[in-house]
Design a protein around this nucleic acid. Structure first.
Lengths: 264, 264
DNA sequence: TACCGATGTC
DNA sequence: GACATCGGTA
C-alpha cells in the first residue's frame, strides 16, 4: 500500500512538464526514503534523476519498496487536470497494476481521482557516483535558460568555459559566432540573483544545446540552477525543489573535434 | 426599420464568439420582445437558443417582426472590429438585404459602420417546451469549463451523475479513467462561487464532451452556469446574460451502450 | 509531438 | 512591462 500526499501539487506538475519531453517511459521508485526516478532519455544520451524526499510530503506511507512503470506523457496529461493549488495524493494498492492520482481543490469542493495503468519497464538503475567537480556554477535559472535559447538560434553546440572570473558560453554557426560571459557576482539584492563560481581547475567543455534547452524546462522549479563541470565527466544541471529534493540532468560532453573535421 | 443600440457591445461580441463555432448560419429574429436566435448546430446534434430582451438595449426600435439570416462567422469577424468598450448599434432598413453594425468608441472619437449581406436560411423554429427537470446544477462557469476540458484529455464522453450530495463527472479512455466530484457548497464568499444542486430525482446521463466544450466558450458571459438534466431529455446548459437574457445550449444524451459493445 | 508566436492577465 | 497560458504550425 502506497499513499503519498503532496500539499504543493504544482511541484509534481512542474516536474512532469520538465521531464516528459526527454523521457517517454520510466519507473518511479518508492521507498521509505522518498519518491524517485532515474531514467535515460529516449536517445540514451542524457540522464534524468529526480528525488522527492519523504519528509516533503504531508503524509507518506510506503509499506514496501515498489517500482512503478509509467508513461510520462500520460501521467503529465493527468496531472494537467490538477489545479495549481490542488493537493495531490498518489495511491497504489499492493500488487495492483494501476496507480491513482487524487486531486483535492483547496476548498475541498472538488475532488478528482484519475486512475492510470502501470507498465513494465526494463529499468537500468545506474548508480551515479558522487564526483568531485572542477567547477560549479550557480546562477539564476532564468538566465541560464535564456542563454541556452539564445545560443541555439546561432549554433547547435555550446562551449562552456569556467575561469575564476566567470563562465563563458560560446557557440558558432553558419551565420556567425556568439560568446556570452557571466561574471561572478555576489553583490545582489536577492541571493537567488547571484552568480557564484566555485572553481578548483579551469574547464572548457562542449555540449549539445538541444539537450540543455530541454533541461531548462525545469526552470520553473527553482530560481537558481547549479551546473557542475569536470573534464571527462557528464555535466550535472541541477534544479533544487524547495524542501524536497531535486531534478538533475546529466549530459556527456562532446569530444572536441579538430576544426578541420568539423568543417569538412 | 430596425435600430438596436447596445451600450455594452462586448456582450454581443462574446455571444458570437461563443456560438459561431457551433452554428454556421442562422436567422436572428427581431420583434418587440427582443432579439433572438434559435439554431441547430451544423451536425444537427445540438441546439443553441439566444435571447436578448429589448429592455436590455438603450434604444430598441423594431417596427415589425423580422428575421435576418446571417453567416455567424462573418458576423463575428465584423464584431471583432468593435472595441470591447464600444457601443454597438444594429441597423436594418425594411426590405433591405443587408444589415449594418455601427461601433462607437466610448469617447466618440471613432465611429465605424460595417455592412453585411443577409442570406436566406430555411429556419426550423422548433418550439422548445419548458420542461420539468430531475436535477438542476448551478456552479461557477469556469469550473464547469475546466472539468469538461480536463476530462476531454482522457475520454470522449462524460457521464454526469447527480445526487443530493453533489455532481459527478466521469470519463474513461485509453490511458485510464477519471472521476471529478463537486459537492454542493453554498457557504462561499460570493454567491457566484456556489455550487447548488436542486434535485427531485437522481440522474445519470452521458454526453459527448466535444459539444460541452463548445458550449463552455460562453463562460465569459456569466460567472455561473446552470445545467438542467432529465433522463430522456436533452440537457440544457444555460449562461445568463446580465439584465438581458441568456444563451442556452441543448444536447441530447447518448444512449448508454452495453459495456460489451463499447469494448469490441 | 515539440516548438514558436500571439494573446490576455497581473 | 513581464509572465503564463493557449492556439497554430512544422
Amino acid at each position: 500500500m502506497l499513499e503519498l500526499r503532496l500539499v504543493q501539487g504544482s511541484l509534481l506538475k512542474k516536474v512532469l512538464e520538465s521531464i516528459k519531453d526527454l523521457v517517454n517511459d520510466a519507473n518511479f521508485d518508492c521507498s521509505a526514503t522518498g519518491f524517485s526516478l532515474q531514467a535515460m532519455d529516449s536517445s540514451h544520451v542524457a540522464l534524468v534523476a529526480l528525488l522527492l524526499r519523504s519528509e516533503g510530503f504531508e503524509h507518506y506511507r510506503c509499506d514496501r519498496n515498489i517500482s512503478m512503470g509509467m508513461n510520462l506523457g500520460n501521467m503529465a496529461k493527468m496531472l494537467k487536470c490538477a489545479g495549481n493549488d490542488d493537493i495531490i495524493t498518489i495511491k497504489a494498492d499492493d500488487g495492483s497494476d494501476t496507480v491513482t492520482f487524487m486531486f483535492e481543490s483547496p476548498t475541498q469542493d472538488k475532488i478528482a481521482d484519475f486512475e492510470m495503468k502501470l507498465m513494465d519497464i526494463d529499468s537500468e538503475h545506474l548508480g551515479i557516483p558522487e564526483a568531485e567537480y572542477h567547477a560549479i556554477v550557480r546562477m539564476p535559472s532564468a538566465e541560464f535558460g535564456r542563454i541556452c535559447k539564445d545560443l541555439s538560434s546561432i549554433g547547435d553546440t555550446v562551449v562552456i568555459s569556467v575561469t575564476k572570473e566567470g563562465v563563458k558560453f560560446s557557440t558558432r554557426g553558419d551565420i556567425g559566432t556568439a560568446n556570452i560571459v557571466c561574471r561572478q557576482n555576489t553583490t545582489v539584492d536577492k541571493p537567488e540573483e547571484a552568480t557564484v563560481i566555485e572553481m578548483n581547475e579551469a574547464v572548457s567543455l562542449t555540449f549539445a544545446l538541444r539537450y540543455l534547452n530541454s533541461f531548462t524546462k525545469a526552470s520553473s522549479l527553482s530560481n537558481t540552477v547549479t551546473i557542475s563541470l569536470s573534464s571527462e565527466l557528464p555535466v550535472v544541471v541541477e534544479y533544487k525543489i524547495a524542501e524536497m529534493g531535486y531534478v538533475r540532468f546529466y549530459l556527456a560532453p562532446k569530444i572536441e573535434e579538430d576544426e578541420e573535421e568539423t568543417k569538412p
